[in-house]
Write a protein that binds this DNA or RNA. Structure first.
Lengths: 98, 98
DNA sequence: TATTTAACTTTGAAAAACAAAGCACTTTCA
DNA sequence: TGAAAGTGCTTTGTTTTTCAAAGTTAAATA
């Protein structure tokens, strides 16, 4: 038998990063503020998790405006999509022995 | 829209505890040593995660023998089964927007 | 002009993860 | 018989991660 957790991606151990990714898979683009409210996080906490995901190049940041107000939005990258799907596959494999 | 991570169980954020539970769902009983080898962990690390799961009453410990050698085995409790399934449901709901 | 909002960064504390070593007990091997 | 090895821990201490709170910059609104 094989180590069932070896293929899980460490970046997605965090529920918050998992939540961000799952939201970005569904919604093409989401603002900082929406993520914050949806996941019920403080600014600093969200920012640091987004940073981790950006470092890994799993998400991309877009600085823009709504009217003249700044609005930062985030989207998933191809690499991020790949990694997330691989993680979900690993989870499934681990669990589908049920 | 609802917070997608609110229903995830914090105990299962850990890949190791997730791995232990997934193994115990499939195999009725597993020894300390087998878990250790399968998950590639040090004694201390495994023991502390098992302790967390035991505290939560998600697993039960059985001290026994194989021949005359001591052998501690672990099994999942009904509560553990419930909690794990609820976690998997939450994961699925989070992801099945795909 | 004062306040608010957005999106951070910085700081620091608390919690969690982890490896290594020690330990009690038993068994096996030389 | 004595040394080495295995099982299943606990203890210790370090590293990593998480997180909240406060500070920051810049623009918008009252």
């Amino acid at each position: 038998m094989k180590n069932p957790i070896a293929d899980l991606n460490k970046i997605f151990d965090s529920r918050i990063r998992l939540g961000v990714m799952s939201m970005l898979i569904v919604n093409h683009e989401i603002s900082f503020n929406d993520l914050k409210q949806m996941l019920e996080l403080t600014d600093g906490n969200l920012a640091s998790h987004l940073n981790t995901l950006e470092q890994a190049q799993f998400i991309a940041v877009h600085k823009g405006f709504i009217g003249r107000k700044t609005s930062t939005t985030y989207s998933i990258t191809d690499l991020g999509k790949q990694a997330f799907k691989a993680h979900l596959d690993a989870l499934e494999k681990m669990i589908n022995k049920l």
